[in-house]
């Protein structure tokens, strides 16, 4: 549905996006994740046809975003960063206007507006001025606007930023419900959020894509973290010898306490055997937790590694 090839964008001498390539399949929800200034908004603005890339190509529904911009826009719903809206319009008037400029004809507009208001649970505010709505409801109206012409592709720039936890939860659920019917690209700087909603993650750092894949493939799946009092080398060796253990990494050693990440074969639960290995060598086991390293840590590690290079 979306094909991006070697996209590069310079603002003057400054590169905001460098050689970015990725594809998104129909019905997927893809998360672009990166720190502020990583280039997420830039990538999205290019896809929406707001501005062209300096070099490289992007296609949406097999239309080039520069040459066939109008065709792309007809098939695309966009919610820009910080959800700009006309605050002096009522929700219904606003959605009607947005629907009309997106090519919905006079006869079906009313029906479409009712439909997206129902979908985004904004029906009871249809006659309220947008300026009087809470941030969470504005976000819903922004989403409704993006959905109004039933686009193939949805591009949502930081859709949950600035919301309270309850609103975040609701907006995430809304987006998740869109999967399958629409192809979605959303951006965020919170990785756990992306791993909750998205089927695919693309990590951008300083304009470059540094990792991409399913959220599961980015976290080190089956990892047990242990805090052990004992000589680092020996602990690593003994733990490594346990059946089904793939690799043992030592994260840090502080005043005799070592923090170890033990990667295990998928599906294997070796926690008891690990505990036994520690105890039988007379070391102290202070902590043992499974569930793997969070994506957040992995993301930060990737970013740090990139910085060092």
């Amino acid at each position: 549905m979306i094909e991006v090839e070697k996209l590069t964008k310079y603002y003057g001498p400054k590169a905001a996006l460098i050689d970015a390539s990725f594809t998104v399949k129909k019905g997927e929800i893809v998360g672009l994740i990166g720190l502020n200034g990583a280039g997420k908004t830039t990538a999205m603005r290019i896809l929406t046809g707001y501005m062209p890339p300096t070099s490289g190509k992007a296609r949406v529904a097999s239309y080039d975003v520069v040459e066939k911009s109008l065709e792309v826009r007809k098939r695309m719903g966009y919610m820009p960063e910080s959800t700009p809206l006309y605050t002096d319009m009522s929700v219904r008037d606003y959605l009607t206007f947005m629907g009309r400029i997106k090519g919905i004809d006079r006869r079906s507009i009313r029906h479409r507006v009712d439909d997206v208001m129902k979908k985004t649970a904004t029906t009871s505010y249809s006659n309220n001025l947008i300026g009087t709505l809470s941030k969470g409801y504005r976000q819903r109206v922004g989403l409704a606007q993006a959905l109004i012409h039933d686009p193939d592709v949805l591009i949502l720039d930081e859709p949950t930023v600035g919301l309270d936890p309850q609103q975040v939860h609701e907006v995430r659920k809304l987006i998740k419900d869109l999967a399958g019917k629409h192809t979605v690209i959303l951006s965020s700087h919170i990785l756990s959020e992306i791993s909750m909603i998205c089927s695919h993650v693309i990590i951008i750092h300083e304009g470059r894509i540094i990792a991409a894949g399913a959220p599961g493939s980015l976290s080190r799946g089956n990892t047990v973290r242990m805090v052990v009092r004992g000589p680092e080398r020996d602990v690593r060796m003994k733990l490594g010898a346990v059946d089904k253990v793939v690799k043992v990494g030592c994260k840090s050693v502080e005043s005799g306490l070592g923090t170890f990440d033990v990667d295990c074969a998928p599906g294997a639960d070796v926690r008891e055997r690990l505990a036994h290995a520690v105890a039988s060598n007379g070391w102290g086991l202070l902590e043992l937790s499974s569930g793997g390293i969070s994506l957040e840590e992995e993301f930060l590690a990737l970013v740090k590694k990139e910085v060092r290079i």
């Binding site: 707001y50 826009r73 966009y78 809206l85 997106k102 606007q145």
Partner: peptide
Amino acid sequence: SGTIELLLTAPL
């Protein structure tokens, strides 16, 4: 307000 971005990315 940023609404111009919505207008300029609509099929207008």
